[in-house]
């Protein structure tokens, strides 16, 4: 555990909590892509199956349970409790275009051809692109609530911090995981455009709106 990994995890946790609270307090999931949230629930489910097979630490286990629990709670709020506020007309990204290729890639490029390892690989690849329905939705509507941009910022910063964590681990532990690193780079790059808008607009007190 190093400072990048810890702050990355906390940033990830903050993102998840911000989104849950935003929906809960406003009693609305307007502007939130339910498809991205289903993909994240799928990501956590397939990655954390090792909760049943191995114990790393109390920190590791509790964070995994919190992430999975919050992911399903978010999906429940969007598709059940506050379904009336869900903006399905703008949430039109075709997720099969992500899930199918990612599934195929997980079968082809993995560390070990075993069920748990393929599912872990699938979750890593899927996570890297799972935000696309949300970004697509924002590009369609041309705007995002400020609280939604805080969520996206924390979520993007988390993987960027993991990149520094992997550099640290490579130098100090000789640890090197090509699959996680490549997927993490892709994931971070997808947020770059958003980071630019967040820094130049939201942090200066303006609402995030895209030119028509």
């Amino acid at each position: 555990m190093n400072v990048f990994r810890l702050t990355g995890d906390l940033s990830h946790l903050a993102a998840i909590i911000i989104l849950l609270l935003k929906i809960w307090k406003s009693r609305s999931c307007a502007g939130i892509s339910g498809k991205s949230q289903i993909l994240f629930a799928l990501v956590f489910t397939t990655r954390y199956l090792d909760l049943l097979t191995s114990f790393i630490s109390l920190y590791n286990t509790s964070m995994k349970i919190i992430y999975v629990g919050c992911a399903y709670a978010t999906v429940y709020l969007i598709y059940a409790k506050f379904r009336a506020t869900y903006d399905g007309n703008h949430d039109t990204f075709r997720v099969e275009f992500l899930v199918v290729p990612v599934g195929g890639l997980a079968f082809l490029v993995n560390h070990d051809f075993s069920p748990l390892e393929i599912l872990w690989t699938f979750s890593i690849y899927l996570e890297s692109v799972a935000i696309l329905p949300q970004l697509f939705m924002i590009s369609k509507t041309g705007e995002a609530e400020t609280i939604t941009t805080h969520y996206l910022f924390c979520l993007g910063v988390y993987r960027a911090l993991y990149l520094f964590n992997w550099i640290w681990r490579f130098y100090f532990e000789g640890f090197f995981d090509m699959i996680a690193i490549v997927a993490g780079v892709v994931q971070t790059i997808l947020y770059c455009d958003f980071f630019y808008l967040y820094i130049t607009k939201v942090l200066k007190g303006k609402k995030l709106s895209l030119p028509a």
């Binding site: 990830h12 191995s54 590791n60 070990d112 390892e117 872990w120 964590n165 090197f176 090509m178 699959i179």
Partner: peptide, 10 residues
Amino acid sequence: VIGRTHHDEL
């Protein structure tokens, strides 16, 4: 350590 022997990250 090349690759992943166990999943210690989140």
